[in-house]
Design a protein around this nucleic acid. Sequence first.
DNA 1: CGGATAGTTGACTTGCGTCAATCCGCGTGG
DNA 2: CCACGCGGATTGACGCAAGTCAACTATCCG
Lengths: 201, 201
Amino acid sequence: MHQGQTHAAAYILADGWVCSYKLLRDGTRQIVDFQIPGDFLGLRSVLFRTADHNIEPVTPVEASEVMKSDLLLAFEATPRLATAVLWAASRDEAMVVEHLVGLGRRDAVERTAHFMLELTARLILVGRGSRAGFACPLTQYHLADALGLSSVHVNRVLRQLREDGLLTFHKGLVTIHNFDKLVELAEFDQAYLDHDGPLLL
Amino acid sequence: MHQGQTHAAAYILADGWVCSYKLLRDGTRQIVDFQIPGDFLGLRSVLFRTADHNIEPVTPVEASEVMKSDLLLAFEATPRLATAVLWAASRDEAMVVEHLVGLGRRDAVERTAHFMLELTARLILVGRGSRAGFACPLTQYHLADALGLSSVHVNRVLRQLREDGLLTFHKGLVTIHNFDKLVELAEFDQAYLDHDGPLLL
DNA sequence: CGGATAGTTGACTTGCGTCAATCCGCGTGG
DNA sequence: CCACGCGGATTGACGCAAGTCAACTATCCG
């Protein structure tokens, strides 16, 4: 999916990772979020006439397409579904907000730690990770574009986290050596992920 | 409204400006967005059990409270209203995303210019501004907390924009001297604001 | 006439970017 | 089976955008 594209559909990810991002004129990009299995994506490109961001796969993916007309009809027929989708959209926005706070007010190390902890929490929810770590298909370039850093600096940050005995990122595997200290360092509070699910009256 | 608060309501702003922000442990804050007259705010704190951010007035405000139960009942009764609110939430998210891109990939001058142009576009929509400028109740501290900069640096950036004949920020008044050059500098594309309103089937 | 609050400016420091070189693992094709 | 190329990771040297500290001005208000 590309910026400016019309008639885009939405998807539910069954397997694999994708990332959504925006491109700037000078060729740099900013990754807004990664979606992992179970995530609903592309809602904005359905509600808006044209997509305002790009989505591309990080790994091979398996997904179900949800067509615009079906989605809007389902909202008419089942109002609770609309409320649930609204909740999902709000959770998405909460993640973007937390990401924004990181870019604005956390230094590179805290930001990276926070990012890893968010991924961990989300992956645990769908049974693909634990407090000890998870399989991570991202490259250091992905991290750089998500964290607003250069890939060189991401590498330095990862080295520091490794040397401090907090976390290693190697060969597609993130291993967390000290979960509690990482939480402390990143000032991570997962309230914004609202794990309890939609509130239906 | 404060982080952690339960039973928060939502509001429709009739007059005045407010800002929503998150606080970090070290006392710094990151402003996520400002709301201006006509904006709907606090949706997330209604759908989630506890508010995940703070909202405070910038000026004296006038607003209508929308209670949680009324909102959810209205969704059941009027599915199109739910779709419309979903659209509004998506527009909100699109603004947060654009803000995030700015923090991650634009330098201080571009970021400030972009921010001013977004405010301009939004204020024009509600008849409180024009391409020539608008009344702006924000302090340079507000700008700093929104743009992820120090107030000292915001001051330097504003000076540069003034000296380049682009924009002045003085005494609660933003005056735009060269709209087109500002758009060019900030790489501003207002597609993400989707001015056409919700798409209802 | 103090005493807030907001804005302004200069001098110095620093976190992160840029450039460049090197290394490593892997797949491909001669 | 080895040579090569390529994407990703790693490291050092150097530069700059933005932060910090600190002093000063302007304005408003009781």
